[in-house]
Design a protein around this nucleic acid. Structure first.
Lengths: 199, 199, 199, 199
DNA sequence: GATGAATGAGGATTCATTCAT
DNA sequence: AATGAATGAATCCTCATTCAT
């Protein structure tokens, strides 16, 4: 294949610069407008050649964007969700933290989702933090019996859909959505008295 | 603008033929492979010219595909959901019927979802059947208090995500997913004893 | 694949026009300078798009060039070689006629040879007119015993090498080369008294 | 111009390493796949920069490859052909030795030929060993009268065509081809009783 | 002697669309 | 109603080479 430029400091910095520019471009213009030319323009690169110099292909660039965003989000979540003692608390925190991340990094989230949508359906990432969390709660009796894969899919896709709601009603505060979603999936996972989780 | 070809019989048939070929192409090859050339090939058209003759633009063609599928689904749903007396029954029927539709028309559903994903986030279709149903149940006291827009979004995106689950675990029966999702959103909408809706 | 444009009259004419322009471009600038842009320029086409409209790929265009030239040459040869009664006469005529063709159509010959050289070594065209001619002479006792495949290869490559000689000594008359080569392979095929075929 | 790196020991070794990698790359992938990137990869160089550091241009690299191979072959031939007393023996040895070289160094031969084919027809190398040998035999009366330039071209191109035959019939032994070609050009050069040189 | 980084020109090809019957 | 022909902009990517240590 090709000699990777990840090892060096400057190379790594360039890669990150390009990734950031890609995120900004997709967030603003949408995936299919995010050509190398447009990305290079935003990153103030002398030519698109610099992109293909640092990334094997457009596909690899996009994969890198997703990896970067998901990596960021994972760190963000683990730091916040880690403190929870019960699975129920953890789920509540997971949902609210994700919404908070969307609020703080709307471009990142939107870019990752758009890229994901523009790819052929690949098998999902396997057992995620969320899925493990759900399994723990269900097996420990905190939650009702349900298929964790289905539940995780539902939660993920609902959270990914937040930007759509924001576009539809730009004024709405994301905190309200966080409350709403936390309550929704608190009920959906069952067992606990509903009142506890009503806002 | 251009004179529409919808009025005539043969024109209408041609349009439907092209729409069907578009659905099949997207379902098999994915949206971004679904070029006019590929669609024409599948529809056995002599040239792509026939497509632009019958549709103002690619965008209009894709809109027509979505309109066709959503129209079909709407009829399908109204026929099945209409008989429900309570909002709870209606929601249960809505979810199960949608899954059934996915089962019977996988290509249609996949095409509509892919097209939707490949468009810039436009404002959703406004107050849908689902949203009205949810409002009725909530206002009538059957459901807990929640934002119907958020709940509708969650349900829609979860249902649209079904093909992803099927790709990940091809063997699974869709009937099992229907039970699972019906139960999930029965709990999520609150109030009724959970046991009633467990399978 | 793609709907071919060969059937129609104008399409066929366009294809031939492009083939001719390709031959001229290769003959003058060489294969690797013969880009679509350069060919389109020479053919006075509005854009390179016209080439890819009429040919599936550059490879198909080049194959078409070879097919055209070899088809022309085959007709040329059959008309002249057909009259020979003995295999020896036929061979003599084959060589002289090929040289004559090179003289009359230098660009065609050069283009075909260059294209051939720029492709990965594919298996040759199988039993050619030349090879059959050699087998007839050998089996009939006119020629010595030899491997017809090797002899045919030697003759073909020698004839294809003529343009190289012309470049080296531009002044030389091709008629002299024809005599020389005819005598060379008259001896090489053996048996007949050498003097007969000396010029 | 640029200061050549031929003088130093390590520089010379690097140059040879790159030449060898170029030969291997062309032999395996073909000339037009043999980019600096691909060659550097095969030679395990950290970047293509090392190539342009040691060679003024790609053209110079390719010329060096040809010079290396032809130099090798020349030494090989002189050692074997030198012992011959008559021109006829020398020719026989020349052909057989060249075939032997092809057998022992297929990659080198193929690379040299491909490079040669991919260049614009330049004037040949001038009076070669082969051409001098032919002139000696002809002028001394061993051979018939013929144009040594034409005969040399025929022999060279026939020998260069051997790889094509091998591709067409991979099983065949090169020794058989050596016999066949030696006999062919023994007859082609004339005068001596053909039987002497039949196998 | 060696190398990571950067460069811009040029490559074929795909695309939806318009022209002219 | 249908169609063959034509179009030019845009795509990603590859290339050999130069810059600056």
């Amino acid at each position: 294949m090709q000699v990777k430029k990840e090892g060096t400091i400057t190379g790594s910095a360039r890669r990150m610069q390009i990734v950031k520019a890609t995120i900004a471009t997709i967030a603003e213009l949408g995936y299919h407008q995010a050509s190398f030319a447009r990305i290079a323009e935003r990153a103030r690169l002398s030519s698109t050649r610099l992109i293909s110099y640092h990334f094997d292909s457009k596909d690899e660039l996009m994969s890198q964007v997703i990896a970067t965003v998901h990596g960021d989000l994972a760190i963000y979540l683990e730091r916040r969700v880690g403190g929870a003692t019960t699975a129920r608390e953890a789920l509540d925190s997971y949902i609210r933290s994700t919404v908070a991340y969307v609020k703080e990094h709307p471009a990142e989230m939107r870019a990752a989702t758009e890229i994901h949508h523009h790819r052929r359906p690949e098998s999902p990432a396997g057992s995620s933090l969320l899925e493990r969390l759900l399994a723990r709660g269900r097996d420990g009796g905190e939650f009702a019996a349900f298929d964790t894969r289905v539940m995780a899919m539902a939660i993920h896709r609902t959270l990914d859909g937040l930007p759509l709601l924001l576009d539809a009603s730009p004024g709405t505060d994301l905190d309200a959505y966080a409350d709403e979603l936390a309550a929704l999936y608190a009920r959906a996972t069952g067992h606990a008295p509903a009142d506890t989780f009503r806002r």
